[in-house]
Amino acid sequence: MGQSMRINLQVWRQRNEKAQGQFETYNVETNPDMSFLEMFDVLNEQLIEEGKEPVAFDHDCREGICGMCSMVINGRPHGPKQGITTCQLHMRSFQNGDTIVVEPWRANAFPVVKDLSVNRSAFDRIISAGGFVSVNTGNAVDANSVLISKEVADEAFEAATCIGCGACVSACKNASAMLFVGAKVSQLSMLPQGQPERETRVVAMVNQMDAEGFGACTNTGACAAECPKQIPLSVIANLNREFYKAKLNGK
């Protein structure tokens, strides 16, 4: 086990969506093997013992797959390392004595619920608008009756690994959700099963995305750089192409 570390934490505190928020400063004793969220556990336990209100933050699986954790750490969603979520970040990525500023995802489309916790239901509504294949249970043919090349399957899988955490939106200066939408559109447009609804899907999803109040993409690439699943920027190009094609066909 590593040496103990002292961290100066500046954490965004906000009672609820409507309330004004502000930063609070805390000192936490931690060690390099602790995960970032475990450090928050330690802080919260400390706060509870002192009779203070613990910091609310979202987290669940703590292994980088559920997409629930969501902290902007020193200006970067999920912290300083690439390809991981907040829960996979360990204190060994920081130095003893560091000051760390922790904020929630910030975007109009992701209103703050409390402290570091935000409401990402906009993503669900986008999926609900078209991020599916309309196949009722029981309609399927044998799984091997449609062959899909390994290359296509792998590429579709890569896009499908999106965990819907919203780091893309959080990192984007325009609070754009196009990496998220692009990932789902890419996955389903590549696979044969996604073909029948290919055009209606992309239009419906983009319309919903716009209605939710996400910004427009200006191709800075920040989303892909911060994506914990390293979804490539090419999914946005796919999204654009799919959308224009659908529009050309009058969808």
């Binding site: 196949v135 029981g138 399927a140 091997n144 090349s149 390994k150 579709a156 499908a160 696979l191 099963q193």
Partner: peptide, 22 residues
């Protein structure tokens, strides 16, 4: 067996062989 069929139909990208089979 129906589960696999259903999931594939939904667009679940299972791992595949070069020939395109699961």
């Amino acid at each position: 067996t129906n589960i696999i069929d259903q999931c594939v139909a939904q667009g679940v990208p299972f791992a595949r062989e070069y020939g395109g089979t699961l």
